[in-house]
């Protein structure tokens, strides 16, 4: 199978965010960056499909050159090749620009792809837009937020998470899949993998060499401001014997919060 996985470089999910003085983004200095957590499930799923059915896994990132680090991680996990679409633009919180870059790349360089895999959303923009947009731009089916995937020949069955249930979805290849936690347990890089990944060359393609039409590249959103959410003021803390604590919780819910 010809498998393509798309990953994003994002701030470590455990880190504290600081807003830049211009209110247009976050302060990147001093932040640790990682591969967006859901993307790891997508990489793992591609590796498992290759192991079961043969083929090739190519991992692609749209972002700054610093993202080469996460591409190396994917190579160390076992991906065959990696590629960076270099885009120095700051986080725009817009999906369409990245989706157009990916769709152009796929059309030009990977016309015989079978499956495009993404994380269900990136950490940061939290948009969950790019996979569906790419599917639309390429005119292929999409199944998002997938927790189980079965591929048989040119057909696929995916279980997608919805509110309180799973949807069983059937589709044909080529298609777009976005991964949700639960799809698999991503592997760690091996030492051998890390050594091999160091030797691999990662081609870099500037975003403006993909022939993307201007109407995709012009910004469609204006950031008015980025700010910290209002801090919740801490409430009351009590330490009482269990029966009294239980009474106090119910009294609080009833009389103060007026919830029950």
């Amino acid at each position: 199978m010809n498998l393509l996985v798309f990953v994003k470089r994002v701030p470590d999910t455990e880190s504290k965010i600081r807003i830049a003085p211009d209110g247009q983004g976050i302060v990147e200095e001093g932040l640790n960056f990682i591969i967006s957590p859901y993307d790891e499930y997508a990489v793992e799923e591609a590796l498992r499909l290759r192991e079961a059915k043969g083929g090739k896994v190519t991992v692609v990132c749209v972002g700054k050159e610093e993202a080469l680090l996460i591409l190396r991680k994917c190579l160390a996990m076992g991906a065959d090749e990696a590629l960076l679409i270099k885009d120095s633009a700051p986080e725009s919180f817009e999906g369409l620009r990245v989706a157009a870059a990916i769709a152009s790349l796929v059309k030009q360089r990977f016309p015989n792809f079978d499956l495009l895999l993404f994380g269900k959303q990136s950490f940061g923009a939290d948009n969950a837009q790019v996979p569906a947009m790419v599917a639309e731009l390429l005119g292929i089916p999409q199944v998002n937020v997938v927790v189980k995937l079965i591929i048989e020949g040119r057909n696929g069955v995916a279980y997608r998470e919805i509110e309180g249930a799973l949807e069983k979805v059937v589709f044909s290849l080529p298609a777009v899949i976005s991964a949700q936690k639960g799809l698999n347990e991503p592997r760690y890089e091996t030492l051998k993998g890390i050594m091999a990944a160091k030797k691999k060359e990662i081609p870099i393609i500037p975003i403006d060499e993909l022939g993307i039409s201007e109407d995709f590249l012009t910004p469609k959103m204006e950031i008015i401001k980025l700010e910290m959410p209002p801090t919740k003021k801490a409430g009351r803390i009590i330490q009482l014997p269990p029966e009294e604590a239980a009474k106090e919780i119910v009294r609080f819910l009833r009389e103060e919060a007026k919830i029950i």
């Binding site: 701030p11 965010i17 950490f123 940061g124 923009a125 939290d126």
Partner: peptide, 15 residues
């Protein structure tokens, strides 16, 4: 909310 609720983004659409 962005960054999983660690920040709030206010924006305007141009399209």
């Amino acid at each position: 909310p962005v960054y999983a609720g660690k920040a709030l983004l206010t924006l305007k659409l141009k399209t």
